[in-house]
């Protein structure tokens, strides 16, 4: 390959890049949002909520005494989080979740942070935690310890990103920051 051939190839590539960017459409490969049939999800317990499936409905009483039913939030995107006061990554995550909630509560996104009350240190400590972090989103209380296991919240925090149709789009184990919540909720319907 001599220098002239190289120079011509360089110019052709430059023109091609310009053409692709300014003239042609973007060929970004859109992945189907749902249902997501992943091998790992299928091998799990069939009653366990998996990505691409409907989030099991529930009714719990929140910390301030109100009934919270998941299906009432149909039409909104929901971040369904499972946490406890003694869990350090949950502590790290809460300020990000509060910030995210404040910025997005009027944009059709709801945050439900289910406290695993049956394995937590009493409702006073949950109340103190909520006041300390200034949390304003609903805190449904899993007092009889049924919902956490049903949603496989074994390692906490565990979070489900649910779309406006009530379908689970993502399960995230471990803490998320505000940017990640933003990314995950903006990529779904």
């Amino acid at each position: 390959m001599n220098k002239n051939t190289l120079s011509i190839a360089i110019i052709v590539l430059l023109l091609a890049i310009a053409a692709v960017n300014f003239l042609g459409p973007s060929f970004a490969e859109e992945k189907p949002a749902q249902p997501v049939a992943s091998g790992a999800a299928n091998t799990a317990d069939s009653s366990a909520p998996a990505e691409g499936e409907a989030a099991p409905d529930f009714v719990l009483t929140s910390l301030d005494g109100e009934a919270v039913r998941l299906s009432d939030y149909r039409g909104k995107k929901v971040i369904l989080n499972f946490w406890a006061t003694w869990c350090p990554p949950c502590k790290a995550e809460m300020p990000h979740m509060q910030k995210f909630y404040e910025a997005n509560k009027d944009q059709g996104i709801e945050v439900l942070a289910v406290n695993l009350t049956s394995i937590d240190k009493g409702e006073e400590s949950v109340q103190a935690f909520v006041e300390e972090f200034g949390l304003t989103f609903p805190i449904p209380m899993d007092r009889d310890g049924q919902l956490g296991p049903q949603y496989q919240a074994v390692t906490i925090p565990t979070t489900y990103i649910i779309d406006t149709e009530g379908i689970i789009q993502k399960k995230v184990v471990g803490p998320m920051d505000e940017a990640m919540m933003q990314k995950l909720t903006s990529s779904i319907n």
């Binding site: 390959m1 590539l13 692709v20 960017n21 970004a28």
Partner: peptide, 23 residues
């Protein structure tokens, strides 16, 4: 050691990238 050949490779990667996402 030719710079030109690397410019060629960098542009080839640039072209591949820009097919799938904005520049």
């Amino acid at each position: 050691g030719s710079t030109q050949i690397y410019i060629l490779f960098v542009l080839a990667e640039g072209l591949t990238l820009s097919i799938f996402q904005p520049l």
